[in-house]
Design a protein around this nucleic acid. Structure first.
Length: 443
RNA sequence: GGUCGAGUGGCUGAGCGGCCCAAAGCGACAGCCUGCAAAGCUGUAAAACCACGGGUUCAAAUCCCGUCUCGACCUCCA
């Protein structure tokens, strides 16, 4: 069965073939740690987590998933100054928040290169570009720009022509509107800790060069998949591509862009003030529900948020999670229909349909599906709720259940119902089954 | 101005030439189960005439043309 992937550079579905047999390298643009995460970051994280899972589980690839941390940037400096904090401290604090949120929805990543750890690599890359005639230093300043006019391939990722594009004002030594900064001279008032020595003078790297240098450090001159949000396609990814290719690297073989999260049809963004914070999301449902919702649409489509969306997702995942707790099984064979859906550019919604069908079959008494349900759930990152219950509560619940069963045996239903209500108040849901009563903590 | 997407039942959301009298989930209603619920199962409904108008084809939600509406990017953004 062939895995096909929509490659946004060629704008076509291509059969996926790793550069090195059995191994897959994925680089996903991670957050700029300037302020708290928003829902869009989570969507990207979930999308690529599922993609990596399928590459590993469905195809047995040895996947290295890298998600960088942009920890030096104009906004970090600005925000830190406003908060009267050292920028490095702000970056660290914000990154910690990101990590905990990513972890809570099961989308943590092992490889997290930081921009500030790769300044040396960026400097060599810029040197290479200047040497090849694709970059220039502005007269009388440490600013270095990429020379878009020198690179015929510029615009190939987004299939745009330079003359049709709007651009920035020419100034600061920039020769053309789309020439972008590779190295930036420090601005007045910026702390000296935010500047590094370079052949062009003290300064700091431009945003785009960071990713190019980090992919090189992690994978070398070529790697399989470059991912990120659709909003990064231009200019970020276009610029990364241009500078990396101009420096002589093959760079990414496939480009994958996840769709954006919108609210009432509009992109969620700070400037529009329509952002729904991550806190608000988690108030509406469990992390499992948030993750399910984020992954429930195809990764390339726009995901529109509306009130009640998380609650709906909660109901849907609960079906699967409840089944999982009732039918514990080791991951077994993945159904063909599920594999076909995932192989077709990671069609999670269709795969979810297969999962739900299997759950229904299982709930109808077909015990043979338990292992495959477990296997599919692992791919999608759906887990049975982990009961983190303290013994005190457990003892109390068991005691109450005993009393309730006694009451039921005596047909004292007023008593048994009040006990059920009491348990409900404790946040405990009970299920009466043929084999007795089971209970679980809500959420 | 340029580039690229989207419009499918009450809601979410697959399908992208025949297997579609359109998957799956949520929601609604009914039945079964239950002491009653919950969970689960079964079934039903809502005009799903697949934005609209043409066309191609033996065959179109799916391809082509036009129209309308909405969105993203072209400045920092997952």
């Amino acid at each position: 069965m062939a895995l096909s992937v929509f490659d946004s550079k060629s704008a076509s579905v291509r059969v996926f073939e790793p550069l090195n047999p059995g191994k897959v390298g994925i680089y996903v643009c991670g957050p700029t740690v300037q302020s708290a995460p928003h829902v869009g970051h989570l969507r990207s994280a979930v999308a690529f987590d599922i993609i990596a899972n399928w590459l590993r589980i469905g195809h047995g690839f040895d996947v290295k998933l890298v998600r960088n941390v942009t920890d030096i940037d104009d906004k970090i400096l600005v925000n830190a100054k406003e908060q009267g904090k050292d920028w490095r401290e702000l970056a660290l604090d914000v990154e910690a928040i990101f990590n905990s949120v990513y972890d809570s929805i099961g989308a943590g990543v092992e490889h997290r290169p930081h921009a500030t750890e790769h300044i040396g690599g960026m400097i060599s890359l810029i040197k290479e570009l200047i040497g090849r005639g694709h970059a220039y230093q502005a007269a009388g300043s440490a600013n270095v720009f990429f020379d878009t006019a020198s690179w015929a391939g510029y615009g190939e990722l987004t299939r745009q022509k330079l003359e049709n594009m709007e651009g920035e004002a020419i100034g600061g030594g920039r020769r053309a509107a789309h020439d972008f900064a590779l190295w930036k001279a420090p601005k007045v008032g910026e702390p000296d800790t935010a500047a590094w020595d370079s052949p062009w003078g003290r300064g700091r790297p431009g945003w785009h060069i960071e990713c190019s240098a980090m992919t090189f450090a992690e994978f070398g001159e070529a790697f399989d998949i470059h991912g990120g949000g659709l909003d990064l396609r231009f200019p970020h990814h276009e610029n990364e591509l241009a500078q990396s290719r101009a420096a002589g690297y093959a760079f990414a073989n496939y480009w994958m862009h996840n769709g954006l999260v919108t609210v009432s049809g509009q992109k969620m963004s700070k400037s529009l003030g329509n952002g729904v914070s991550v806190e608000e999301f988690f108030e509406q449902g469990s992390p499992a529900a948030v993750r399910y919702w984020l992954g429930s649409a195809h990764y390339r489509s726009t995901l529109d948020y509306s009130a009640g969306a998380i609650a709906d997702a909660e109901a849907a995942v609960s079906r699967i999670r409840n089944y999982l707790t009732r039918n514990k099984a080791n991951a077994g064979v993945i159904p063909v229909a599920f594999a076909e859906a995932m192989d077709s550019d990671f069609n999670v919604p269709a795969a979810l349909g297969v999962l739900h069908d299997a759950v229904r079959a299982g709930n109808s008494g077909d015990e043979s599906v338990a292992a495959s349900v477990a296997a599919m759930a692992v791919v999608l990152g759906i887990e049975a709720p982990v009961a983190e219950v303290n013994h005190e509560l457990a003892a109390k619940v068991e005691g109450l259940l005993e009393q309730r069963n006694a009451a039921r045996a005596n047909k004292d239903f007023t008593r048994s119902d009040s006990i059920r209500e009491e348990l409900n108040q404790l946040g405990v849901t009970i299920e009466d089954t043929a084999n007795g009563t089971t209970w679980s903590i809500n959420g």
